[in-house]
Design a protein around this nucleic acid. Structure first.
Lengths: 192, 192
DNA sequence: ATTTTTGTTGATTGACGAGTCAATAAACTT
DNA sequence: AAGTTTATTGACTCGTCAATCAACAAAAAT
């Protein structure tokens, strides 16, 4: 009994299912059938809405990046003062949501995807540039000419702390990650 | 014309070919045939020496970790003074060899492998513990009680800088990575 | 009322790939 | 010389999976 206007609903369900499955399996070795099943439809329908598995992956990646972008933007809007802005970015980057099994798995594997799929590489590069630009902008009033260098360090540190979480068996600890990043920031600002 | 004592030679060739292929393809989606071909033998022989593809991956991972460990140990032996030891670890971590396409690809994908293969996870955890222990030990005389925290940050930073290199199209720049890490160190030691 | 568009799936195709096996050959052992 | 161990591969099995297709159903348009 086909209701109309299913396309966006189906696509959305597929994108979310893709992320969950990648996180569950821990790699991109997920079949379209697995994803479709979790999204409550046949694999044929998945192929109908997305032309290929790769398109599904890319859509999932855009979704994760969009969520993250929105989180950062929201945190920035509510922040006050230069330092508040930097801390807002850090808090958004290490929010509990970003440390959920699926999110971390998704990021990790999108990195791998970027190795072989140019469009994935492009998307990641855009995200990295934006993150760094945000950091640099927020740091300018605090660190002047050194803002760029500090932003580079902070950006890498954020990614590195992500990686750490992957290896831990227990529940991820975003607070600890924030603490490390804030320490670095304080050190760079000469407040030790 | 089978010469005897081929086993170690074949295994070695396979391990190296595995790393190269993973780096070339950019994911773990390499076939045993590809690896075997690059190593100059049939896929059947690869299966003969390693029981399975997974065993091949694990052997390759051990190889990479062993190389890195040896590099760090060598650099430490030649270092003088506490700060020299920290810098030695950084230099070893960001040596040109570790930034070659294959090496970076290998590391990235071993991280993914660790998600689904417990033995891989164990190996990576051992490496991480050792790196951190080395850093902490070297930092103790410089930072006292804060050595642990700083080591945690530096360890994550090292991994994060790796990730950055993956996205860059041009040749990797180890020197820039070292510079960022050293900045972090200097900042934490309050020498800005 | 019938044609078109949208939604949906079971069944199928076609390719590919991990792992096995039988067979062959050269070296070592007795 | 006969037998054993090691090296090696082509051919094969068996499974999996992305992508396609034919067919069916319901809403919209004509």
């Amino acid at each position: 009994m086909p209701k109309l206007g299913m396309e966006p609903i189906r696509k959305d369900a597929l994108v979310k299912a893709t992320i969950v499955e990648i996180g569950r399996v821990g790699s991109l070795d997920v079949t379209v059938s697995q994803i479709a099943k979790r999204a409550g439809m046949s694999s044929a329908l998945a192929h109908h809405y997305f032309g290929s598995k790769e398109d599904m992956f890319l859509a999932a990646m855009r979704h994760v990046l969009t969520l993250y972008g929105a989180e950062v933007r929201g945190a920035l809007a509510a922040a006050e003062g230069p330092e508040g802005r930097v801390r807002a970015i850090l808090r958004a980057s290490f929010s509990p949501g970003n440390f959920r099994r699926e999110a971390v798995g998704a990021w990790m594997n999108f990195w791998v995807l970027a190795q072989s799929v140019p469009e994935a590489k492009r998307l990641l590069a855009v995200y990295q540039r934006r993150l760094r630009s945000n950091l640099r902008h927020a740091l300018r009033p605090l660190a002047g000419a050194r803002a760029g260098e500090i932003a580079a360090g902070l950006g890498a540190l954020i990614d590195g702390l992500y990686l750490r979480e992957v290896l831990k068996s227990g529940p991820a600890d975003g607070a600890a990650a924030v603490a490390v990043a804030v320490r670095y920031l304080e050190a760079e600002l000469g407040r030790l």
